[in-house]
């Protein structure tokens, strides 16, 4: 069966609402974060480091801090829905 793609959702980041949309590209779950203003949208995914340690990263490189901050919120959002 197909794994359902997360429906688009909104998150509050530093008192601003951003729109998050999930896509699947290849076998990767990719999240596009739209700031609804002039700031460039951010695309992030979960990468796998040594010893299978997972971490959030921006696609392309260069916005790692943002990826970690927003990735954590996305993970919390998805986890909260499953409870």
């Amino acid at each position: 069966m197909m794994r359902p793609i997360e429906p688009p959702f909104d998150l509050f980041i530093e008192s601003k609402m951003v729109r998050v949309v999930e896509y699947v590209i290849g076998a990767k779950r990719v999240f596009r974060v739209d700031y609804n203003d002039s700031k460039k949208p951010l695309t992030i995914t979960v990468a796998i480091g040594p010893n299978n340690k997972k971490f959030w990263t921006s696609i392309p490189e260069g916005r790692q801090a943002e990826a970690v901050q927003i990735g954590r919120l996305i993970a919390d959002h998805i986890r909260d829905k499953q409870i």
């Binding site: 990767k28 796998i48 040594p50 921006s58």
Partner: peptide, 18 residues
């Protein structure tokens, strides 16, 4: 990738994703 250690295959996958 982005300052984080990744395996070669993961690196290639991320670059394809880009």
């Amino acid at each position: 990738y982005n300052g984080q250690k990744v395996t070669r295959s993961e690196f290639i996958q991320l670059k394809q994703l880009e």
